[in-house]
Design a protein around this nucleic acid. Structure first.
Lengths: 137, 137
DNA sequence: GTTCGTGCAAACGGTTTGCAACAAT
DNA sequence: ATTGTTGCAAACCGTTTGCACGAAC
């Protein structure tokens, strides 16, 4: 995955430094919706010489270049989602975990009939609890 | 409206102090989705002796008692909505303004078919721009 | 040698909290 | 007397920024 990460960065005119690749390797391939500090922790585990500022700067850079989507659903922190295609979100209110829901899993009707609004984008935010898988054995 | 505000507070076991009534008078009757500091400013205009801490504490109190809904849709600030019934939201990306959309304006299909999720609540978040009303004259 | 990226520490902005004065019961 | 409420200032926490050093072109 590293090679194609570098290719993706360069395709966006982003110079592929070691720090950025370490960040990309983690954040572009997670489905956990981590926040910046969680990303910092995860990246440092394999690549200790990254500063917090660089992580924040890089994440913003990735968002600006469409490699990452920033999500604001919980108070006080932004989380990042490498899935930049249209999709919905499920938020587990017990754990705080966020799950992607495929776009086709839900259907929103009458969105084109909203009076006086030019719709550019929409998504459903579902809250509840994720059912625990029955015990493994 | 003041009398009924006091009644609503007391029904929730909230003592109706002067500060709380001043806050309630503004925030329970707005459709502007203000943040805490905007509420502080608005309240001080008519009732100068309110501290910021009291505004923050009171808003949280109102949220805890179901008089107010806290909304997290923009980075770095929470906004408050006195409409505590199910409804959707439209966010004007140019102005940042938030508008309530009636629950019946949209219809979400297949929400009951989500596998492995216990849904407690959901709402559609629509982004775009509000069409300007044609000039007044 | 100029531009770009990094790291550090300080600044920032919204929110919470500790504490002392005060009001209500 | 006890309990609840307020105001102030300080603390907090996620994020941004200024600046100096170093790397890449």
């Amino acid at each position: 995955m590293l090679a194609s990460d570098a290719a993706r960065l360069e395709k966006q005119g982003i110079r592929a430094t070691a720090q950025r690749l370490a960040i990309a390797e983690f954040v572009l391939h997670t489905d956990e919706h981590p926040c910046a500090d969680e990303i910092w922790d995860a990246v440092r585990a394999s690549f200790p010489m990254v500063s917090r500022a660089t992580v924040y700067n890089t994440l913003n850079l990735f968002v600006d270049h469409g490699l990452l989507q920033a999500l604001v659903v919980t108070e006080g922190r932004v989380v990042f989602d490498p899935n930049v295609e249209k999709h919905h979100h499920f938020i587990d209110e017990e754990t705080g975990k966020i799950f992607d829901l495929p776009w086709e899993a839900l259907e929103v009707g009458r969105i084109d009939q909203l009076q006086g609004f030019d719709v550019r984008d929409y998504q459903v935010v579902v809250r509840g609890t994720k059912r625990r898988r029955r015990a493994r054995k």
